[in-house]
Amino acid sequence: RQGFVPAAYVKKLDSGTGKELVLALYDYQEKSPREVTMKKGDILTLLNSTNKDWWKVEVN
Results as ranks from 00 to 15, higher is better:
residue 39 K to E: 06
residue 33 P to Q: 09
residue 52 K to W: 06
residue 46 L to E: 01
residue 27 D to T: 05
residue 25 L to T: 05
residue 1 R to V: 08
residue 38 M to Q: 01
residue 9 Y to Q: 07
residue 11 K to F: 08
residue 42 D to P: 01
residue 31 K to I: 06
residue 36 V to D: 00
residue 48 N to P: 03
residue 31 K to W: 04
residue 2 Q to I: 13
residue 43 I to A: 02
residue 18 G to F: 11
residue 28 Y to A: 00
residue 27 D to H: 05
residue 14 D to P: 15
residue 56 K to L: 15
residue 25 L to A: 04
residue 7 A to K: 07
residue 18 G to N: 12
residue 58 E to C: 09
residue 30 E to R: 12
residue 53 D to K: 15
residue 57 V to C: 02
residue 24 A to N: 00
residue 28 Y to C: 02
residue 37 T to Q: 05
residue 51 N to I: 06
residue 21 L to M: 11
residue 52 K to H: 11
residue 55 W to H: 03
residue 44 L to W: 03
residue 60 N to H: 13
residue 19 K to P: 14
residue 34 R to F: 13
residue 46 L to I: 06
residue 21 L to Y: 14
residue 19 K to G: 09
residue 48 N to L: 08
residue 37 T to E: 04
residue 25 L to V: 07
residue 48 N to Y: 05
residue 59 V to I: 13
residue 12 K to F: 08
residue 36 V to S: 02
residue 49 S to F: 07
residue 55 W to Q: 01
residue 49 S to A: 13
residue 39 K to H: 12
residue 2 Q to F: 07
residue 11 K to S: 10
residue 34 R to V: 11
residue 17 T to E: 14
residue 36 V to A: 06
residue 21 L to S: 07
residue 19 K to C: 13
residue 42 D to H: 05
residue 36 V to Y: 04
residue 29 Q to N: 14
residue 22 V to G: 13
residue 59 V to Y: 10
residue 14 D to T: 14
residue 56 K to Y: 15
residue 22 V to R: 00
residue 38 M to C: 05
residue 35 E to H: 06
residue 53 D to V: 14
residue 54 W to Y: 07
residue 18 G to Y: 09
residue 57 V to E: 01
residue 29 Q to E: 14
residue 7 A to S: 13
residue 23 L to R: 09
residue 7 A to F: 02
residue 8 A to G: 11
residue 17 T to S: 12
residue 8 A to C: 13
residue 16 G to D: 14
residue 6 P to N: 03
residue 6 P to I: 04
residue 33 P to Y: 08
residue 3 G to F: 08
residue 59 V to K: 12
residue 28 Y to N: 00
residue 24 A to R: 00
residue 57 V to F: 00
residue 23 L to Y: 10
residue 13 L to H: 05
residue 37 T to C: 07
residue 10 V to M: 06
residue 58 E to P: 00
residue 59 V to P: 07
residue 15 S to E: 11
residue 41 G to I: 01
residue 23 L to W: 05
residue 15 S to Y: 13
residue 53 D to C: 14
residue 14 D to K: 12
residue 40 K to V: 08
residue 15 S to A: 11
residue 38 M to S: 00
residue 47 L to N: 02
residue 12 K to H: 08
residue 6 P to D: 02
residue 32 S to M: 07
residue 48 N to V: 08
residue 52 K to G: 09
residue 23 L to E: 12
residue 45 T to N: 09
